[in-house]
Design a protein around this nucleic acid. Structure first.
Length: 450
RNA sequence: GUGGCUUUAGCUCAGUUGGUUAGAGUAGCGGUUUGUGGUACCGCUGGUCGUGGGUUCGAGCCCCAUAAGCCACCCCA
């Protein structure tokens, strides 16, 4: 007998296993959203989980680079280090990382998309409309609702500057959420308006910091914003200017302030166009900022009306996506569904249809091993007729068989004993209600369940 | 990167001021009962008490270190 060392079963930090019922629910979300994407002409792509570190680094800022999972080179990964450094004390993580790791796990789906578009542009039809659903990895400290491995669900349009793309993506939001049964509010703003606000307050160079502060508004309140703006060395007058613009309820109210700021007027026009074509649940919110500073036009954020969990979808237009890979500059606009949160919300609101976790239609239970073969043949007949069916094999306790049917959410049970084998007449029992139909032939069962 | 909490059976958790052989429920396995069925009962397996030190006649419990996980912040999805 070999001595096997027992390992306590456990997961790596920030990762999850999914039970069959959970996978069914997740797939329901994916499938619903995919159907909408396809209806609007988006095609699905896949890219590897592993990318060259070169592709990934430098795209997410210094913070992001720290959160990249790096893959240790195979073989003698220290050989290069030995060549270049003799003393272990000289090792600086920043210097040795490129020597021992050339690959990493993707951090999002957007940078791989940029790489993909530049690399395959000859074979792609532009405007390129693609969607992509898959896991991404971040070496972040996990917490509730935040994981090191999680799924992103993106749809983007590359290479078209028409604002109808924005309208289309807004419609996709509305349609997908409605199909999932979620009541949402979609807030929109325009990065150009935020730029104009910074210009209006005469502090263009602080745009990034200001947007980060504005983004926190609903968390820290107006006093908190004033406090943070003060830390940025803004004068009282500058703060007052920003503060006053954050009070507006419609884009039109910004017009007087932006009379001399062209980019601001452009931002207002773009927003008005999208809002004019959008549904009722889309509203303008000047305080919507989003930390990401690669956005250059419209930005979206969607929240669930019934559960306070933060944003469950977001997106925006970005003009410089392919630049970093030496591609001809193409404008892109995209949306992303936060499916981990959508799952939590739908679970809380009980929005998953009963049918999605349904097991096979019938479970055949032989009373004894001697009738297994007969039962097996009946099950195969049902399957041939297009009815999903299982047989519970092995001479085990009845209790187990019923528990099995319950756990797998199987609708009907048929127990097979000598009587059934001789007469070929069965009893069809509803596993939930326990209603029983006596003396029913296999043909009749097929008819009922088809 | 900063802080808080947790860690005892596969899972959920008890475990008294430090004192014999560390318990329960649940799951798993087996048996009895039932025998067109979803009941009831009995038994068994499973633990280097996260890890390493220390204090003590004696540590699951006290002290130190360390690891992992979770939660909150930063940031983000």
């Amino acid at each position: 007998m070999s001595e096997v060392k027992k390992i306590k079963p456990s997961l790596s930090k920030g990762t999850r296993d999914f039970l069959p019922s959970e996978v069914a629910k997740r797939n329901y979300i994916f499938d619903t959203i995919k159907t909408v994407f396809r209806k609007y002409g988006f095609e699905e792509i896949e890219t590897p989980a592993i990318e060259r570190l070169e592709t990934l680094t430098g795209k997410y800022g210094e913070e992001g680079d720290k959160l990249l999972f790096k893959i240790l080179n195979s073989g003698d990964y220290l050989s290069e280090v030995r060549n270049q450094k003799s003393e272990i004390r000289e090792l600086d993580p920043k210097e040795i990382t490129p020597l021992i790791a050339e690959k990493g796990l993707r951090y999002d789906l957007t940078v791989p998309l940029a790489r993909y578009v530049v690399q395959h542009q000859e074979n792609l039809a532009f405007p390129f409309k693609r969607f992509h659903i898959g896991p991404v990895w971040r070496a972040d400290r996990p917490q509730k609702g935040r994981y090191q491995e999680f799924y992103q669900c993106d749809a983007d349009i590359i290479g078209s500057i028409s604002l109808f793309n924005e309208v289309e993506l807004t419609k996709i939001y509305t349609e997908a959420f409605s199909k999932l049964g979620l009541k949402t509010t979609i807030r929109v703003n325009n990065r150009k308006i935020l730029e104009a606000i910074a210009e209006y307050a005469n502090c263009k160079e602080l745009l990034t910091q200001i947007t980060v502060v504005i983004d926190k508004l609903d968390k820290i309140g107006m006093d908190g914003v004033k406090n943070e703006l003060g830390k940025l060395n803004l004068s009282g007058e500058q703060q007052e200017k920003i503060y006053s613009l954050l009070q507006v309820k419609t884009a039109g109210e910004l017009k007087p302030a932006f009379s001399a700021i062209e980019i601001g007027r452009k931002g207002i026009d773009e927003l008005s166009f999208v809002l004019a074509h959008a549904e009722a649940n889309v509203v303008f919110d000047v305080t919507l900022a989003r930390g990401l500073n690669y956005y250059t036009g419209i930005i979206w954020e969607a929240e669930c009306n019934d559960v306070k969990i933060g944003s469950i979808a977001s997106g925006g237009r970005y003009d410089n996506l392919t630049e970093m890979f030496g591609g001809q500059n193409m404008s892109g606009v995209g949306i992303s569904f936060g499916i981990e949160r959508i799952y939590d919300v739908m679970e809380e609101l009980n929005l998953f249809p009963e049918a999605i976790s349904q097991g096979v239609q019938v479970l055949f239970v032989p009373r004894d091993i001697s009738v297994e073969e007969f039962a097996f043949q009946q099950v195969q007949k049902l399957r041939d007729a297009g009815i999903s069916a299982e047989i519970f094999l092995g001479n085990v306790k009845k209790q187990k068989q019923f528990t099995y049917a319950e756990q797998k959410n199987i609708a009907y049970l048929v127990e097979v004993g000598d009587n059934e084998k001789n007469t070929e007449v069965f009893r069809l029992r509803n596993a939930k209600t326990r209603d029983t139909q006596n003396d029913i032939s296999l043909e009749e069962i097929i008819r009922q369940l088809s």
